[in-house]
Every structure is written in C-alpha cells, then in structure tokens.
C-alpha cells in the first residue's frame, strides 16, 4: 500500500491505510505519468476506472488498445492487458484482437489525430461493420505528442505550429462522423463533466457494438498556451461555461468552434448486430450445423 497523507486531521479514530481507488487500476510502478500539469487526459482515466468499478467489468477479460500520442500512453498506465500499437492503427489492431478472442471486452483509447487523421479510414470501417469495440477519443484539438500541430479537429482560427497564422481548414465533427458511419452509441462530454462521463462509460460498457465517446480535454502546454487561453483549469472552466447538455441532439448541428455552444450528451443509442453476430447468423443460415463459429484461440489450457 502506498503512502497517503491525510492533510488535516479529521479526527478519525484510526487512520486507515487508504489509497486512491484509481490506483488499483494503474501500473503504479510507472507513476508519475508523463502528462503535463493540467492536461485533461488523466481526468478521463479517473472516469474510465470509476466506470469499471460501477459496471463491474471483469478486468482479466478487458483489453485496452491505444495508438500513438499523449493519449496513446493511456494503455501503458492501465493495469490491464494493454497494447500501445502504431500511429492511427489502434482500431484495426483491436478488431483483430476482438475477433480472435470474442469473449474479451476491447476498448480503444486514443487521440483525435490518431483516430481521425491517420486512422480515420479505420474508424469509418469499424463503425460501418459495427465491430464490438468501445472507442474513446480524447480530443484536445491538437497533436500533443509532436508539439502542437494542426489536427483534423482544430477549430477554424486557432493557431497551431503548422498553421501559424491560424487554421483556415474546416474541422471534423467527430460525433457526426461516428453516427454517419454507423456507430451504435455516440456521446460527447468534456473533462468538466466527470460524473456524466463516468456514467456514460458505464452505459457504454453495458452495450455491444461500435460505441464512440468523444471527450474534450485541455492541452494547456500547446493548444491553450499558443492560443492565449490560459491554463488547464481555465480551459475546463470554459467548457463549463460553454457546454449545454442536449441528449439526442442532431449530430449535424453540434460542430465545434473557438466560441459558441459545446453540445454534450448522448446523441445516438441504437442497437444492431455486431460484425461477429452478423457473420454467425448469416453463416448459420448458409451452412446450418456445419458452420463452426470462431473458437477461443489455439491456446491449450492448463
């Protein structure tokens, strides 16, 4: 048990050797993590682990897959079967893992550049096929790991190192794309909305199919500083002020800019058969009893 320090003596009878509940989900020998002061990624991890407890997810059957980036480091810090893959390819790796061992719950956790620029094509097709994956995107509007370059989510007008006079490209609205591509569950929160986010993770764990959760998170070191938007806490305060909760909102209307409303909530929740369910059902029709659904790998138990 690691050291905890009660700050002010609250006159407890005995000081229990308590530890932050999140710690039991982390590879503690790897702490402290690499994220900057006020970076929102760690906050999302709290909410994620809270949902693991609340949803009662079996941790030995849960695998997490990340791409490359600051967010991509999440996999390495969680004490789960965890895979830190290549830039943009977390989703196809996760697809293979899930189909090879369908009893696993597979979560993809990565950044907006990773999932939507270099990995955008994989996102579209995994959603279309309804692969049974939960995809978590921490959207900080920039490329954090490489030093603050233009991302596919960068709002118009925002300055980035590779858009030094401000961005003139139209950004992507991630929930809109997820819905159009066929995701069965689509939500957006910000790191201000910690309770809602934890609840949404929990709801997503109770569903099957391609589930997408976008989380707006401050990157104080690069995005906020460069755009003179203050520290991480200022970024979160702005989320608080600009956010409106609108469950079921039309995803065509919820694009993001440097100003204006940030619509958050659960936008899409519509079940349909996963890729594997569809294949099984289809081949059962074609082949009847002769069809052999995928087994659990070639591992010989014991």
């Amino acid at each position: 048990m690691s050291e905890t320090t009660p700050l002010e003596d609250p006159n407890l009878a005995i000081q229990p050797p308590l530890d932050n509940p999140v710690m039991s989900f982390l590879r503690q020998e790897r702490m402290p993590h690499i994220w900057c002061p006020g970076c929102g990624i760690g906050t999302t991890v709290n909410c994620f682990t809270r949902a693991l407890t609340d949803a009662g997810v079996g941790l030995d059957r849960l695998a997490i897959v990340s791409g490359i980036g600051c967010t991509g480091r999440v996999a390495g810090y969680l004490n789960l079967d965890s895979f830190h893959t290549t830039h943009g390819r977390a989703i196809p790796f996760a697809t293979g893992l899930k189909l090879a061992r369908p009893e696993l719950e597979v979560v993809v956790y990565s950044g907006d550049g990773d999932l939507f620029a270099i990995g955008g094509n994989h996102f579209l097709h995994a959603a279309r096929r309804n692969q049974d994956l939960m995809v978590v995107c921490v959207n900080n509007f920039t490329y954090g790991m490489t030093g603050g370059q233009l991302a596919p989510t960068t709002p118009e007008g925002a300055s980035q190192t590779t858009a030094p006079f401000g961005n003139f490209e139209a950004p992507m609205s991630l929930p809109y794309i997820a819905e159009a591509a066929g995701a069965v569950f689509v939500a957006r929160w910000t790191v201000y909305h910690v309770r809602q986010l934890a609840r949404t993770f929990k709801e997503a764990f109770r569903r099957k199919g391609f589930r997408f959760i976008e989380i707006l998170a401050p990157c104080p070191t690069l995005f906020l500083r460069r755009n003179r938007l203050g520290d991480g806490v200022d970024g979160v305060r702005v989320y608080k002020e600009r956010s409106v909760i609108r469950d079921g909102a039309d995803t065509r209307t919820i694009g993001l800019g440097m100003e204006g409303e940030i619509v958050v909530g659960t936008f899409v929740d519509r079940p349909r058969p996963t890729w594997l369910e569809a294949m099984d059902a289809y081949y059962q029709k074609v082949f009847g009893d002769r069809y052999r659904p995928v087994g659990g790998g070639s591992h010989v138990e014991g």
Binding site: V65, T95, L97, L99, Y283
Partner: peptide
C-alpha cells in the same frame, strides 16, 4: 466457415497487417 475461424477483408493493407497482430495476441 466450416473450419472455424475468421476471415476479414480490411479497408487497406495497413489495417490488414495490424489486425493480424491483434489476433495473434488474442491467441
């Protein structure tokens, strides 16, 4: 289908070449 396993036609070779690596870690 009659042997028991998965074939998936991916969206490109980047995807195909890492989907197999995911599947290898699935056993």
């Amino acid at each position: 289908p009659l042997v028991g396993g998965v074939f998936i036609q991916m969206e490109d070779e980047l995807a195909a070449s890492i989907a197999i690596l995911g599947a290898a870690w699935g056993g």
